[in-house]
Design a protein around this nucleic acid. Structure first.
Length: 304
DNA sequence: TTCCAGGGGTAGA
DNA sequence: TCTACCCATGGA
């Protein structure tokens, strides 16, 4: 197995571990996190069909970015390397403009100003298709179930990495769409979500739904939300999660975690209506989701 | 055994 | 717009 190394430097404050471990995505297959070395692993399929394995860790030096080690078979063409750089930059949001959010945090003093050291970049997948499938697998299920369902999809239908065929990449929409429904259901345990994932894969593979175009769009959030809500299985919670993943933070993902956290912290344990709970973050404007996330995040709430 | 999870679709008002 | 009911699965 050959390997290629490069470092991606951010042009703004950046915290590698704070980004990699910003939410549960880091442990959803084919991602994995090695606590002892602070390394994220990922088996990754390029558009050319080549499957490589990535080791991602903090770069060295004052402008620490993402140090990337790519394990691959044979020569890595320049086009594949450029595609990998783009994918890693996308996953870690190295080009995302967070200065307006940092300005709000700085204005609120401690502990919010800690965010300004490079937090606020929530890890995402290289494609909105992968993120949408994973989000569908978070609905009405405990986190352990989400991990089980995503692992099952990868193991059943992902392309194997030549260095260790037991390690697989996230399956493409085309790969999932090609599986007969009965076989798909038999080889996964998605429950009623199975039909949603199969329909999504079919629409993306056939070109009827261009999620990656939606992800790049600069149209108003409300228009993107309506498009996401038109996906079977995507409701208000999933749409808000997906908006966060494409860099729109003006919608809050109201789920059981949000409801319990806001009730405990702001309503003395009494359960408020969803509207009352949402109103807690009204002052954050287009940054509500990030504000909630770091409010929830262990440590940021201390001393508030 | 029963309940419910990082909800959503549908029908009916 | 709101509510009631149903949806598969597996952990608690």
């Amino acid at each position: 197995m050959d390997s290629t190394h490069f470092v991606l430097a951010p042009d703004a404050p950046f915290d590698f571990e704070g980004t990699a471990y910003s939410h549960g995505w880091v442990v959803l297959a084919p991602n994995a996190w090695d606590e002892s070395s602070g390394t994220m692993h990922r088996v990754h399929r390029l558009a050319t069909g080549r499957v490589v394995r990535l080791e991602l860790r903090a770069g060295e030096g004052s402008r620490s970015g993402v140090a990337v080690r790519v394990e691959h078979r044979g020569r890595l063409p320049a086009a594949d390397r450029r595609a990998l750089e783009a994918d890693v930059r996308h996953m870690f949001r190295l080009g995302e403009e967070l200065r307006p959010f940092y300005a709000l945090c700085r204005g609120r003093g401690r502990p919010w100003n800690r965010v300004c050291g490079g937090l606020g970049r929530l890890l995402r997948s290289p494609t909105l298709f992968e993120d949408t499938v994973k989000t569908l697998c978070t609905t009405n299920v405990q986190w352990g179930g989400t991990k089980r369902m995503v692992r099952g999809l990868v193991d059943a239908f992902g392309d194997p990495w030549p260095g260790d065929p037991s390690l697989r990449a996230f399956p493409s929409a085309e790969a999932l769409a090609a599986v007969p429904a009965a076989e798909f259901d038999a080889r996964t345990s998605l429950g009623y979500r199975s039909a949603y994932v199969r329909e999504l894969a079919g629409r993306v593979a056939s070109g009827h739904l261009d999620l990656e175009d939606l992800a790049r769009s600069d149209r108003p959030t409300v228009e993107l939300r309506d498009e996401l809500l038109a996906i079977k299985g995507v409701g208000p919670y999933a749409a808000a999660t997906l908006l966060m993943l494409v860099g729109r933070y003006d919608e809050l993902a109201v789920d059981s975690v949000f409801r319990e956290f806001v009730a405990e912290k702001y309503f003395a344990g009494e359960r408020p209506s969803d509207a009352q709970a949402r109103a807690v973050y009204d002052g954050w404007g287009e940054w509500k989701y990030l504000a909630y996330w770091f409010d929830l995040w262990e440590g940021v709430t201390e001393g508030l």
